[in-house]
Design a protein around this nucleic acid. Sequence first.
DNA 1: TGAGACGATGGTAACGATCCCATTTTCGGA
DNA 2: TCCGAAAATGGGATCGTTACCATCGTCTCA
Lengths: 361, 361
Amino acid sequence: MSRPPLPSATIIDVAAKAGVSKSTAARALARYGSVSAKTREAVQKAADELGYQPNALARSMITGRTKTIGVVIPDVGNHFFAVAMRGISTAAREAGYEVLLSSTEGDLALERRAVELLAGKRVDGIVVAPVSTEETGHLERLEGQGIAVTLLDRPASRVKAASFISVNHVEASTLAVNHLIDLGHREIGIVSEALMPEGWEPDAPQESRNLRPSAARLVGYVNALRGAGLRFRDEYVARSAYAKAAAYEATRRLLTDNPQLTAVYCTDSELSAGAFAALQDLKISCPKDMSLIGFDDQDWATLVRPRLTVVDQPSYQLGMAATEELLSTIAADEDRRGDRMLSGRLIVRDSTARPRSAGGR
Amino acid sequence: MSRPPLPSATIIDVAAKAGVSKSTAARALARYGSVSAKTREAVQKAADELGYQPNALARSMITGRTKTIGVVIPDVGNHFFAVAMRGISTAAREAGYEVLLSSTEGDLALERRAVELLAGKRVDGIVVAPVSTEETGHLERLEGQGIAVTLLDRPASRVKAASFISVNHVEASTLAVNHLIDLGHREIGIVSEALMPEGWEPDAPQESRNLRPSAARLVGYVNALRGAGLRFRDEYVARSAYAKAAAYEATRRLLTDNPQLTAVYCTDSELSAGAFAALQDLKISCPKDMSLIGFDDQDWATLVRPRLTVVDQPSYQLGMAATEELLSTIAADEDRRGDRMLSGRLIVRDSTARPRSAGGR
DNA sequence: TGAGACGATGGTAACGATCCCATTTTCGGA
DNA sequence: TCCGAAAATGGGATCGTTACCATCGTCTCA
């Protein structure tokens, strides 16, 4: 049983068996042009008997469309992207598209190669969560090749014609921090993957569209503080790499160095896990001595004690929206940006409460 | 800026620009046949200047291989499959393959359609975690089309030539239950998605290759009990649908109806979460009054209190192994099954301890 | 010096569908 | 019965690449 030389039936075989020309057979099967009912049936019967399956490659050669979209994300294993991927997959399937997936491990070189391969396979469009917001030459080039691009979760301002679908991270952060402020907290720390963007001015909020999620969340924190007349303190920002262990260490340091803190806001699910563990190990009572807000409503938020207050982001909808946007760009056949920002949602549970000294200062 | 009529450079353009025939240009770029160094350079230069990118569709038409594999799984959003997908993606990339992903929501009709579409796109092989172990006609048909198949995590004995890559669930379960038995537990409950397979005989262990994971885990539980001379009791099996809420209810019922139980083994991560929540709500002290073992080592296992003892399964490696197996089948160009069973690992934490009455009976 | 081998190159036929145009058939109405 | 329009069908050309074969020069060795 050798593999390649298995010649599956072609439309010519079907046509021959049905006793018609291949043009007619093609029309009968693809339902275009006009074919008599009798012929259609005969062709259909022949196709069924031969187990005919049209060769999508040949079809795409002619039509110029592959009915396939590419997806380029840093890590399918990550909960956020996995769920977003489910949204992408569902939206694509419902529109009759298939998905070529590349997981790039956050490596720019791999991302470049992935995009190139996808372009070689002539996908109709690409949903991408780019590694870098600046080095996007490989994405810009796609536009010249007639491949639609939609940016998921991470901006890339140089890719002019690409739509940008994201959660409004600034707003989501503001939700979280305002909740703490409303409870009476004044000394609020933050565990963040980002540092304040250079040259950031609080009065230029529209710029936030060009921020990556981590930076946007930090900006939302600052905005909320200012909105309440509180001062932003550099030392309240615990910078952490994107890893549970790093967040654990960063949080320990933050709390040890700043005993006056009464609340901490974590800007990502991974960071939330690390921070939560740090609180446990430091034996700091939550929410009595410290309020904690996490990001992303994962399974465990209701299993731990105290149950975790979080800002949830609609990952699934994000994937759906990005795909719908991409497909509509492909269908509309024009380069028009249709950016969309989805809203996060605050879910209050037991890890946030009034600070011990509320009203005492 | 209209989209489709953007004619990207073809090899003919490159050949013209370099002043050679397209055969020579093709040889120079794809590095086969023989071409003089000078010509090769000239062609390469022309290709670079035109931004030439070979059309993979046309290439595949001729060569008969797409350098693409299909992946069909029930849910990319699920932690196990997401991580396995990461393994698949990595292994595929390293071998120069791309991945067409279909997430079928556990729906047989969608799985059939996905497989059909993948076959139409002429993938070189498919990694599939089938919905059903019996209704596999669509997979069997693939073999006749020269498309290699590897089964991930779920068997399908009718698909003769397909390799089966799975965790040894029977063994993994035995690990978990033996741990409980070693601690002195005698009345051990189980939360399971499966019922005992019909006609199951404890003395026919080789049959376990044809069991789906949930059934295999249940069988491992029974095996371990028998191995220790304990009786299997039907009423100790809490049957639950694959959902946290269902597992929560099933566990509540199990513990309420059988107060003599001193330990519970959960056969899946989702079920573990539900069972853990049930224990919390019933205010049963764990591990003092009840030991609990979960499945799959998720983030939260170390965040909850008590930290959860689990059987971990190597999801990432499973994806890698399945892909490597598939690719080697494709390369070997022959139909030979190379089944592989990976081992689970027991991670002892704080949710398991000696039963209160240990030694008392 | 001539035969043979080999390197380098060009021309053309595939691959399997769709698209376009020409031709034949059908059918309604005068 | 005949005409014209519309329906039905067939015959290429085409997409962009690789596979295959033929050709032509150059080099080597007897």
